[in-house]
Amino acid sequence: MSHKVPVANKIKTDLHEILEVRNLTDSTFVMRFERKGLEFEAGQHICVGPPNGIHTREYSIYSAENDDYIEILVKEVENGLVSPSLKKLQKGGFVVVEEPVGYFTINNKLPKNQKYVFIASGTGVSPFHSFVLSKPEIDYTLLHGVKYGSEGYESETYDKKRYVKCTSREGTGNYYGRVTDYLKENKFGKDVQYFLCGNCNMIHDVYDILEEQGVSTDNIHAEVYF
């Protein structure tokens, strides 16, 4: 007997030309490259690497679902392997890109008036940038934890009333302190969908705080960067 055979599911990679690089701080930049028909849902990530190496790393997609290019927001990590070599690339160069994956996405079956709280540390704001651009009608509050005020990364994209920059090292944001302190002082409720993205320690602490506030784990979604 014969069965219908789907095509094998090998990971597809391709070279994409870099269309633009925007330096946001000394270490953090947005890289825009050709989309080449890649389909994705806001919140998914892609593996990207320099064209001449065998290494790639995961980066959340920063641009919107309908843009005709793809953007990623990258922080150059000191002594890192891939991010410093991505930083050296210029417009007209190429990157290796794997097809988008991931489950850090918004469930389209939730009601239209669903409230969301997005909690990011550092470049963990990237998938939220894509959410907000892709779904302009979404009812959200974005808490962005950074060290310094200059690390807002194109925060003008967000509605001022919905964006809270929590700066931990200086009082230049909307809140002086960690994002976790802000969350302890400001409860958003049990019916909200919480999306957490960035470093492990922040996510760990936020889980604890939300549990204390009686939020069910079903309403918490996390994307761990490192």
Binding site: M1, S2, H3, K4, V5, P6, V7, A8, N9
Partner: peptide, 9 residues
Amino acid sequence: QGGVFNYAP
């Protein structure tokens, strides 16, 4: 010619 599910019972 193969494929990931091409097995008979």
